[in-house]
Design a binder for these strands. Structure first.
Lengths: 216, 216
DNA sequence: ACGATAATAAAACAAACGTTCAATTAATTC
DNA sequence: GAATTAATTGAACGTTTGTTTTATTATCGT
């Protein structure tokens, strides 16, 4: 009734993170009890407190690492120097790929913000704002360069992000559409939405050519 | 310690509904206790059970009435016979207006589905699907008539709905933009997104003419 | 082989939860 | 004005919650 054979702190902590993201995504933060989480990991509830002082610490860790991962992914994917269209395309591709790959933590980071304390909420929102600022900069540059037609940069950025993040609500891998197909379609919807004239770079998608593309 | 002067069943029930929508939207269904809700209404927790047998019944009632209201609003707003552009414009206007007006119940209906029992979840999703089907029909008609350029009808419908519903996440009345301005901008973003050539009907918005509208 | 430490189990805590029940008073009906 | 019904209170029930404490065992460095 104590330490079990083969137990390893790092592995347990990783298992807790993953199980927590899954359970919170499915049932919600408040609905997930520490005992249920412990059972999912195959451990007693008290063991969780060796890795996370409180339940909220666990939630905050998941969110912080999600946002850090998102920003890091964008910094890797960001083109060093390119036109607004190419930068926007890179942003869309990175955003959709990241959010589909990390569905659970995306759900957590988007739906459970209200369960954070004021300070921690502020810190997460700061990261989010920094990430969204990148998109606004791209849109502004494109509008000033005359390659985009945008009425309101901030509003367009929010609309695009909501649209893209919404993928995780209905997308299930292995159903009608592949990730590449979804990404390609969202890319052309984005380009049309911002008023870009040409559909730059859909090279990754071996997709059936669109039946009606006259507007471009 | 019993019936209070001036107490009225109908008024209390309405107050419970409204307070519940607000509390659930702010703190989440699981985080809202029946005692907290009762305190908000100015009543004891036991009194709530005169109107709603269980907490989940209350949640389901809020969601069902939200969806019924949304569908009813669309049936009122739907043009009897008009082209796809006008029908799409009506859909967008109705959707945004309804969701901004009923921010709280929208939040509830979108975020708390997982707290419903299987049967009730099915019933709510059925209503939602019926509502979304209207949009898909408009998009399909427009694509077939050649006035829209759409790659994937279902995917475009989901993208539009996510984009429009997302308004409630950041929009706060009385800030930078008015409802009319937001609606007008979303309308033209929608029209561009579906590849419509002309921007039919933005007559309701006394907006500063967009600085860059070259694509239309 | 052994001491130190890492990892866990088991039991317990007070607090909060949804819900029920009997008692009590206001409003309505006849 | 008495009888009936509507609306609510206050107290209580058994569970479940997040968390703490203490004891116990596995692992690792030496």
């Amino acid at each position: 009734m104590a330490r079990t054979t083969g137990s390893d702190g790092e592995k347990t902590e990783a298992a807790v993170r993953e199980a927590a993201a899954g359970l919170i995504a499915r049932y919600g933060y408040e609905a997930m009890s520490m005992r249920r989480l412990a059972a999912e990991v195959g451990v007693q509830a008290a063991a969780l407190y060796r890795y996370f002082p409180t339940k909220e610490d666990l939630l905050f860790t998941l969110m912080r690492e999600h946002m850090e991962g998102l920003i890091a992914a964008w910094e890797m994917a960001r083109p060093a120097s390119a036109g607004p269209e190419a930068r926007l395309a890179a942003y869309v591709r990175n955003h959709i790929a990241f959010h589909i790959e990390r569905r659970h933590s995306t759900h957590v980071s988007n739906m459970e913000l209200r369960s954070l304390s004021h300070d921690r909420l502020t810190r997460i929102l700061r990261m989010r704002t920094a990430y969204e600022k990148e998109l606004r900069a791209i849109l502004r540059d494109g509008a000033e360069a005359g390659v985009f037609s945008i009425e309101d940069t901030g509003l367009t950025a929010m609309a695009l992000i909501q649209m893209m993040t919404g993928v995780i609500v209905w997308f299930r891998p292995g159903e009608r559409l592949s990730v590449a197909e979804v990404t390609a379609t969202y890319l052309s919807m984005t380009m049309r939405l911002v008023g870009a004239r040409i559909d730059i770079g859909i090279p990754t998608a071996p997709r059936v050519p669109a039946d009606a593309q006259r507007a471009l």
